[in-house]
Amino acid sequence: MRPIAETFYTIEPLISSAREGTLGPVSVTVYKSGNISAASSVQITTVMSSSVNAATIGTDLQTQSSTVNFVAGQTSAVANFSFINDANPEPFETFLVGFVPGQNINIGTPSQAELGIINDDSATIMFDPVPYTVTEGDSNVMLNITFVTSQPLLEASTIRITSIPTPGATNQATAGVDYVAFNQTITLPASSTGHYYTVTILSNSEAEPAEQFSASLEFVSGTPLTVTGPDATVTINDADAESLTVSSIESTTSISVISSTSNAKSISTIIPTTSTWHSSSRIILSNSITTSLIT
């Protein structure tokens, strides 16, 4: 038991934590016990914590000291502390408030109060801004779509990647024909700075113009992530030979044909006079045939 003739001071959290964006305040209560008959004052100050997620003096908060005054008979007083708002995603961080050393006072238990800073910043995630272009092959082709975070994740985070039509594209790729559609959740582990999703580009024998589809990102759960930047757009180039179908015969040396792709409306083709052609014939465009576009 403490001697009544002596005065003791202790300290405890009052508002133990606050969001970083509010700049606080957090607060402590300083208690005076024992002999409280005389007015007095004590000094308290911020102290670095030894915890794993310790707030940094000078980065997360400034060194702050406060003089707590007591009038005769007063048993408690409150002191407030603030911190610095930054844009860095961080874990919950703590710091201590304790009595300034060297004062001629009796310090009881607890002699320090732990206060916390609640982070309210989130990392960002975006598609890696590189061209996503692939040439359709004789068999299915795999294409990696990558996405990156603005910094290593503090904890795991789950995102969703979804295939969508490309806004404004003239030639839309068709899900199930040109590529395998996807709507997939991916969990990024702590410390991750990005990941990728592998898209299957389907093979087909149809001659086509270059076609496009896109992918979008969405935050689902875990460590907050803010999606920034545009959607990823994939361009599929065709590797199939273009065939031409004869639509009419104009003379013994010239025919009009229709392209199997949508790149041209019609083509005038000059052929050797020794060749025999029929209205139902199909020819393969090659260097031995001279073509000119008719618009």
Results as ranks from 00 to 15, higher is better:
residue 16 S to Y: 08
residue 226 T to V: 13
residue 205 S to L: 07
residue 7 T to P: 03
residue 209 P to E: 12
residue 269 T to N: 05
residue 140 N to R: 04
residue 238 D to V: 08
residue 45 T to A: 15
residue 44 I to K: 01
residue 184 Q to E: 14
residue 8 F to L: 09
residue 283 I to D: 02
residue 35 N to A: 05
residue 14 L to Y: 10
residue 249 I to H: 07
residue 238 D to G: 09
residue 223 T to C: 05
residue 172 Q to K: 00
residue 103 Q to M: 10
residue 281 S to C: 06
residue 11 I to T: 03
residue 3 P to Q: 14
residue 135 T to C: 04
residue 33 S to C: 07
residue 144 N to T: 07
residue 175 A to R: 03
residue 27 S to Y: 00
residue 43 Q to A: 08
residue 67 T to P: 00
residue 79 A to V: 07
residue 37 S to D: 09
residue 245 T to W: 01
residue 272 P to C: 00
residue 215 A to E: 01
residue 219 F to C: 04
residue 105 I to K: 11
residue 166 T to V: 00
residue 247 S to V: 15
residue 250 E to G: 11
residue 186 I to G: 10
residue 40 S to D: 11
residue 273 T to D: 03
residue 6 E to A: 14
residue 113 A to R: 05
residue 257 V to N: 05
residue 220 V to F: 01
residue 275 S to F: 02
residue 285 L to N: 03
residue 291 T to M: 08
residue 25 P to K: 11
residue 63 T to P: 14
residue 253 T to Q: 15
residue 101 P to H: 12
residue 93 E to I: 10
residue 242 E to N: 13
residue 193 T to Q: 12
residue 211 E to A: 12
residue 251 S to C: 12
residue 22 T to F: 01
residue 109 T to F: 07
residue 211 E to T: 14
residue 125 I to H: 04
residue 10 T to H: 09
residue 53 N to P: 08
residue 190 A to H: 04
residue 173 A to S: 13
residue 60 D to A: 08
residue 29 T to E: 09
residue 129 P to K: 10
residue 81 F to T: 09
residue 35 N to W: 00
residue 74 Q to H: 10
residue 46 T to G: 04
residue 156 A to N: 08
residue 247 S to Y: 01
residue 48 M to G: 10
residue 220 V to G: 03
residue 285 L to H: 02
residue 179 Y to M: 09
residue 84 I to W: 07
residue 258 I to H: 12
residue 190 A to K: 08
residue 95 F to W: 09
residue 243 S to G: 11
residue 206 E to N: 15
residue 29 T to H: 00
residue 68 V to G: 09
residue 62 Q to A: 15
residue 84 I to D: 08
residue 132 Y to S: 06
residue 163 S to E: 01
residue 151 Q to H: 10
residue 163 S to W: 03
residue 224 P to L: 11
residue 41 S to L: 00
residue 7 T to H: 05
residue 62 Q to G: 13
residue 188 L to T: 09
residue 83 F to Q: 06
residue 273 T to H: 00
residue 39 A to W: 01
residue 84 I to N: 14
residue 199 V to A: 15
residue 108 G to I: 02
residue 255 I to M: 10
residue 83 F to E: 02
residue 24 G to F: 00
residue 3 P to M: 13
residue 195 H to A: 15
residue 101 P to W: 03
residue 178 D to K: 12
residue 258 I to F: 13
residue 276 T to G: 04
residue 206 E to M: 13
residue 295 T to Y: 01
residue 284 I to R: 13
residue 36 I to M: 03
residue 140 N to D: 15
residue 160 R to S: 08
residue 49 S to C: 08
residue 219 F to R: 11
residue 4 I to Q: 15
residue 231 D to H: 12
residue 231 D to A: 15
residue 166 T to K: 11
residue 37 S to H: 04
residue 277 W to C: 03
residue 150 S to Q: 02
residue 111 S to L: 00
residue 160 R to M: 09
residue 90 E to I: 04
